[in-house]
């Protein structure tokens, strides 16, 4: 378990993921009683022992996301990873990175060229910039979610583990949910013409892996926690640190928490 000590962004979930190595080849075909998904295959651990079949019960999880703004280097690895993992269409974003420059007089210069996917270039701003930082964003998977609330056909829904997901087969493409999301997390997919958004890589979570953005973040700025897991480090940080939410005045009860995040962030 040397990995745990050398990478401070490791969560219990990452450890599980390491154990379930080779899970990429897993099919999630059997669907047991109740909510439990049971994978058909067994998996090999790193040392070669066989684990499984891997069981995943959505009701036994509630994911939280923690973003440490001070650790984000704005490399855009998460955006590129998300794009590959979820086949996100160009110029639309399930996750993105914003850059803020704030002048001494409180003037805010924000940008996010192509969602940060292609990295950032140095920017000349004719002002006395006193603080600047990168802010990763993704769907907040709100508990009191405005988007699923006003989906007229039940195509946007909240899964048992609290993820806000879209049923592409029932979505009529009215884009009401896109209007309702205060965070700009949703878009209408240019090919399927249905609403599309971050799934928190639920297809990876169900196989014991972490999300593509968390896994590919080189600095641990993004972390995933599980409030139903015992002794979860991320849950502990959220409980004990000075965290903030985005647009808390809307009472959407987001599940993405930000630490070291300045108030200019929208």
């Amino acid at each position: 378990m040397s990995r745990d000590t050398r990478r401070n962004d490791f969560t219990r979930r990452d450890f599980l993921a390491t154990a379930a190595k080779g899970a990429g080849a897993l099919g999630l075909v059997v669907f047991g009683g109740g909510f439990a998904f049971v994978s058909a295959n067994t998996v090999k651990s790193r040392t070669g022992e066989t684990i499984g079949p891997f069981e995943y019960d959505p009701t036994k999880h509630e994911y939280l996301y923690l973003i440490d703004v001070s650790k984000c280097i704005g490399c855009g690895s998460c955006v590129r990873a998300c794009e590959r993992e979820n086949d996100v269409p160009r110029h639309y974003f399930r996750t993105l990175v914003e850059r803020y420059h704030v002048s001494r007089h409180g003037r805010v210069y924000a940008d996010s060229p192509n969602g940060g996917r292609d990295g950032f270039d140095a920017k000349d701003i004719d002002a006395d910039i006193t603080k600047s930082f990168f802010v990763p964003k993704l769907c907040n998977h709100c508990t009191n979610t405005p988007c699923a609330q006003l989906c007229p056909v039940g195509a946007s829904f909240v899964s048992p583990e609290g993820l806000v997901l879209v049923d592409e087969e029932r979505c009529i493409g009215c884009s009401y949910c896109v209007q309702a999301c205060p965070y700009g997390s949703r878009f209408i997919h240019p090919v399927t013409h249905t609403a599309s958004k971050c799934t928190l890589c639920c297809h990876r979570l169900s196989k014991g892996l972490t999300t593509a953005c968390v896994q590919n973040c080189p600095t641990g700025a993004r972390r995933l926690g599980d409030s139903k897991a015992v002794g979860d480090e991320v849950v502990e940080i959220i409980a004990t640190s000075n965290v903030r939410l985005l647009k808390p005045e809307l009472h959407t009860e987001p599940k993405c928490y930000y630490v070291n995040c300045s108030q200019e962030v929208r």
Partner: peptide
């Protein structure tokens, strides 16, 4: 399980991952 098509959840959860598990390459 709620006001949605449960099979949609199964389909979403069942998608194949594209990125491997961490450190898969070390194999």
């Amino acid at each position: 399980a709620g006001f949605y098509r449960y099979d949609a959840l199964v389909e979403l959860m069942g998608k194949e991952p594209v990125h491997g598990a961490p450190d898969s390459c070390a194999d």
